[in-house]
């Protein structure tokens, strides 16, 4: 299992669209992916769970990934966060 903390740098935080983009990645992953914010753990393959975390801009988010493609999935997530979910940055 690997884990990493990522930063939310877009202006609006993880609302529906970014949550969708995250699930685009995690949904296809063979590994289990957990998203942790504010001590709340959620299944990162569920768009509803990810949205319910309502992660505000400027937050830290931790991902725990466990499975054969864990490295690859983490890389994709990192890139997504680095690119501000293709939105305006904060």
């Amino acid at each position: 299992m690997i884990s990493k903390t990522l930063y939310v740098t877009n202006k609006l935080g993880v609302h529906a669209r970014p949550a969708g983009l995250i699930v685009d990645i995690t949904g296809q992953a063979k590994s289990d992916v957990t998203i942790i914010h504010d001590n709340q753990k959620a299944n990162a393959k569920s768009i509803l769970n990810v949205m319910m975390l309502a992660i505000p801009p400027g937050s830290h988010v931790e991902f725990e990934i466990d499975g054969e493609d864990e490295e690859e999935v983490m890389k994709l997530l990192e890139r997504l966060f680095h690119e501000n979910f293709h939105e305006e940055s904060n």
Binding site: A16, R17, G27, N43, K45, S46, I47, L48, N49
Partner: peptide, 10 residues
């Protein structure tokens, strides 16, 4: 988003 919710495991 609608489609993703309908496929949401939760």
């Amino acid at each position: 988003a609608h489609l993703m919710i309908l496929k949401d495991p939760t």
